[in-house]
Simulated scan of single mutants.
Amino acid sequence: MENVLFELPERYLTLQREARGVAAACADVAARADEADRFDPDVRSRLTESGLCSVVVAGEFGGRFAAVDSLAVTVVREALAFESAHLDSMFAMQGIGSFAISVGGSDAVRKQWLAPVGSLEAIAALALTEPDVGSDLRAIKTTVASDGGELVVNGHKSFITNAGDADFYSVLCREGDGYSLVLVPADTPGVSVTSPHQVIAPHVLGDVMFDDVRVPEDHRLGEPGNGFKLMLATLATFRVSVAGAAVGLAQAALEEALRHTSAREQFGVPLARLGPVPAKLAESWVEIEMARAMSYRAAAAAARDPFTALHLSSIAKVGATEIAGRTVDRCVQVMGRFGLLQGSKIERLYREARPMRIYEGSTEVILDSLAKKLVKDRAQVGR
């Protein structure tokens, strides 16, 4: 279905066509890749060949644009998620895992890692959560300390995307009374990975342990105690792209439902014209277009100024992921028993939609933050 209700500037339309081509090229392996717990080699080789990951690094390190552009990332993720969650995650995590290097890394670290990230030669990961720590990241127990010109990292990170396949981890640690991000190459002695968990929509996931891991002092990203600021910079740039991925997934679900209900007849008419089915299809289209428009608006604002647009990115993320959940649920319903078939595309989309409402800020946590901003802004207006 063509995007007729919102026109992007030409450079984004060109990028959108390019990303759709990459997604289409992965269609034959998407079902397999979306059940994988390690990088699918075909998806990786096709994404590498496309050069699309250059979108998530700055131009001085071989990136597509002078700076990482939130709207460009969002447009690409929408196209990739339409076909494969594995493909979308592979692309997105290159930026999410490496952005703190762009913002806070030393010249040597940036030169070493960012160009390989943009060419997909080096796989990035961001290690924040721990076995007992999710949204409350200030409760983390992983530590970093300076010792003889090196940084020593100890701790246990859990539910880390790309764990096991990553070439480096950007690790959030306690440092004294503050928090710092530290770049740890995956092959550093003392780094180990286990896979105790998998989620309902499988992807590359694992726990990462750091046992007296030593890295050079310049592997601290930014100043000591600056970890949360760097995390916020990553969030401000990339959170809105989750909305783009949710729109792409919802669009794919609607296409599946349209295909099925247009071809299947009951009581002498196509399902698409029977009873409540037309309203469910139309309601899904309405919500998808609303989510797409909000996602593009928020992403364009984030591209101009990520920090002042963070509330818009949060609104788009919540809105689009909730809409994706509702859309896929409606599509399963109108497809009846065929929407319940294990191994079908709609079943895969149903499972993939659910985690979107949790990762990169759960709906409830984001709504709480938005409510605080709403009340604060209102109080300032009333003064």
Score class of each variant (00 low, 15 high):
S262P: 02
A263D: 12
H260F: 14
R77H: 05
G118S: 10
E150Q: 12
N154P: 10
M294C: 09
D136C: 03
F82C: 00
A100I: 06
R357N: 12
I96H: 09
T237N: 14
S192F: 02
I346M: 07
Q198P: 00
T321G: 08
S135K: 06
F91R: 03
A233T: 10
D165E: 15
D377V: 12
V240L: 13
R354E: 02
V43Q: 02
R383Q: 07
M209W: 09
H156G: 07
R32G: 07
T188M: 00
V191G: 12
R46H: 08
Q94L: 02
V144C: 12
F267A: 06
G155N: 14
R17L: 08
A30P: 03
A24V: 07
E289A: 14
D218E: 15
L128T: 15
A85N: 05
E83M: 03
L5N: 11
I315F: 14
Q333T: 10
A125M: 06
R357T: 15
R337N: 05
G63H: 04
P270T: 05
E287H: 15
A299R: 11
K157N: 09
L181Q: 10
A272I: 07
F307M: 15
A30N: 08
T308H: 15
K372L: 05
F65I: 04
S45F: 03
G222A: 15
N162V: 06
L232C: 01
R46K: 10
G97V: 02
C26P: 02
A243R: 07
A298T: 08
Y350R: 15
P278Y: 05
A371H: 06
A245R: 09
P9W: 04
S284L: 08
V171H: 03
I140K: 01
E10F: 06
F228C: 06
A122V: 08
Q342V: 02
D28N: 06
